Simulated scan of single mutants.
Amino acid sequence: MIFILLVLCGVLAGTLAGLFGIGGGILFTPILFFLFTSTGLENPTPWTIATSLFCTFTASISSSIQQRKERNFHWKEGFLVGLLGSIGVYFGKVTVTSPYYTKDVFVALFSILLFIVAILFYRRSRTDITFQVINNTFGVVKAGIAGVLGGIVASLAGVGGGIVLVPIMNLLYKLKLAKAVSISSLAIVLISLSGWLQFAFLSGTHEGLTQFTIGYVDFGSGLPLIIGAFAGGFLGVRIGHSVDQHYIQIGFSVLILIIATMMIGSIA
């Protein structure tokens, strides 16, 4: 029964991801959080983050492949940001597994992240301005700053880190938006891979929701989400082509605010 429910949730998450053009982590995380908390799983925060990173890793591969097909693939910069992002993932993982990163802290941080995403999408719906290239140089220092910050956010919230990477590269470094998205897509593959592997091989005994677990990664809960997400992703893209993007972006902002409110309500 849980398997079917997770597949359906995955279809919904994939449809929304395809419709709004976002990474799956921003939706995988709340779904897994509600699942793990509602079933009474002990210490649900690291389980949510680790399993969401596994789901995000799988989903992000298809995004990067799509970027390559569209000949918008900057593999050197993407690998550099992703590899350096693993450093940020490590520091985030240390924080998550400390006694100070409680469920309340996680919900507060993730809700703030959701509010930021909602504001960004709403502002995007109100303007058609796109930042153009001013400085196209992208060295190790810039890649390190973006990667480390993206990795920290990824491991603290269970997302790919794109919400940090794209604004830094587009707004701060003045890279063309298409290039920033391409670099972020590949970097997210490496950052999320590093994330779930680091959580998977933590020492100690951890009892998850299903028996298919390694460390804090619950594959039994993540795989049904991934299956549904792949199916829903194609549906979301098709729907997106027939709906005005202005209404899509406003709708997503409202949806994100609802999710944030629900997460806050779960600990109130």
Rank of each mutant, 00 (worst) to 15 (best):
residue 172 L to I: 14
residue 185 S to V: 09
residue 175 L to C: 07
residue 161 G to Y: 00
residue 198 Q to Y: 07
residue 193 L to C: 10
residue 161 G to S: 05
residue 199 F to W: 11
residue 187 A to M: 06
residue 198 Q to D: 11
residue 177 L to W: 03
residue 183 I to K: 01
residue 163 I to C: 05
residue 202 L to F: 13
residue 181 V to L: 09
residue 211 Q to F: 14
residue 169 M to D: 03
residue 187 A to K: 00
residue 182 S to K: 02
residue 161 G to V: 02
residue 205 T to P: 14
residue 179 K to T: 05
residue 163 I to A: 04
residue 161 G to A: 03
residue 185 S to L: 09
residue 210 T to L: 15
residue 177 L to K: 09
residue 212 F to C: 15
residue 212 F to A: 14
residue 158 G to Y: 03
residue 197 L to Q: 07
residue 196 W to M: 07
residue 194 S to G: 09
residue 190 L to A: 05
residue 208 G to Y: 10
residue 205 T to I: 15
residue 185 S to W: 04
residue 183 I to A: 01
residue 192 S to V: 09
residue 170 N to F: 06
residue 160 G to W: 00
residue 202 L to D: 09
residue 189 V to C: 07
residue 193 L to Y: 02
residue 193 L to P: 04
residue 157 A to C: 11
residue 197 L to A: 08
residue 203 S to K: 15
residue 208 G to K: 11
residue 195 G to E: 04
residue 196 W to Y: 11
residue 204 G to W: 13
residue 189 V to I: 10
residue 203 S to M: 15
residue 168 I to L: 13
residue 212 F to R: 15
residue 190 L to W: 04
residue 181 V to M: 10
residue 173 Y to H: 10
residue 200 A to F: 08
residue 176 K to I: 07
residue 189 V to R: 02
residue 186 L to F: 08
residue 186 L to G: 02
